[in-house]
Design a protein around this nucleic acid. Structure first.
Lengths: 156, 156
DNA sequence: CTTAATCACTGCGCATTGCGTTGCGAAATC
DNA sequence: GATTTCGCAACGCAATGCGCAGTGATTAAG
């Protein structure tokens, strides 16, 4: 993991389909180097080149974070169940004042409400408390790499 | 936005570098169609082909959601300021029992603590309350498209 | 110290791809 | 019904992806 990797990733973060030759010209190395490194990075599962979507442009006007407190013995099980819903994009088990935190996508407030208040409790009776945080404006939702580059550079 | 778009996006979600010809063979259309549609989807900013990273593989062992309550007049301003930090990957303004919700990446608990308890309050004196939710296990963090496909299909 | 081995990079050739262009046909607009 | 618009197919060329062999440097083994 060196600066060349960082620059390659930066390039692919901006445009995942940019040609290896083009990147190579920018970074003054051979095209094969780029290709071999990208191959290594992807097969080691450090990065992944993929299509990501603009939620709002795709019609998801209602995005919310939801907190569940559940019976301790149910935490793993419920988190797993929640993960299965396609409207749920993110699920984590948390310490602190919530057991399960997840992000949910909907086209309307009633649909969000029905999902969190009816659909999920029906399958998960041991939910003790629910807290909903509608996200009205997302200022940053980044697939960028600055944090990782900072981390790398402070270690060297 | 039709089923062909969905299939193209599915293919690119699995492998953002898959060749247009290869996708075209699978979907029984011409390579030019794939290319033109991808070009439309990206230039309309509906999708984006990019390199995303595996946080844990990259050394971010500490991921946390953080809630801030701040003086109402400061919400936008502070959310903007928080967005500027590279350790912060996600920032949203929320209704409900928190004003600003963000996700923060760190290599250690002390580093998280220092960031949330010292670094940020130093620049943002009007933070009224803080709540930290360390994420200990992420079961789902998906760039997949199921939710969107479900949305599309229920409308048709 | 020498030798072998490992590793990353380069250069090259070929099959494949990306891309611009043109032409076609269906749907939309008037 | 005529015209325009739109998406798709076909085609050719320049550019790309990829495998392979060779080089040099660093590391491990003798």
């Amino acid at each position: 993991m060196d600066k060349l990797d960082q620059r390659i990733i930066s390039a692919l973060a901006e445009d995942g389909r940019r040609s290896y030759r083009d990147i190579a010209r920018d970074l003054n190395v051979s095209e094969a180097s780029i290709r071999q490194r990208v191959s290594r990075l992807t097969s080691d599962d450090l990065i992944r080149i993929t299509a990501v979507g603009n939620l709002q442009a795709l019609g998801f006007d209602v995005v919310a974070m939801v907190h569940f407190k559940v019976l301790p013995s149910r935490i793993e099980e419920y988190a797993q169940l929640i993960s299965e819903y396609s409207a749920v994009r993110f699920v984590s088990i948390s310490l602190g004042n919530a057991d399960i935190i997840f992000q949910s996508l909907h086209t309307s407030i009633p649909s969000l409400h029905d999902f969190v208040r009816n659909e999920l409790p029906r399958r998960m009776p041991d939910i003790i408390a629910t807290e909903i945080f509608p996200l009205v404006k997302t200022l940053k939702s980044s697939w960028t790499w600055e944090a990782w580059f900072d981390l790398q550079n402070q270690n060297s």
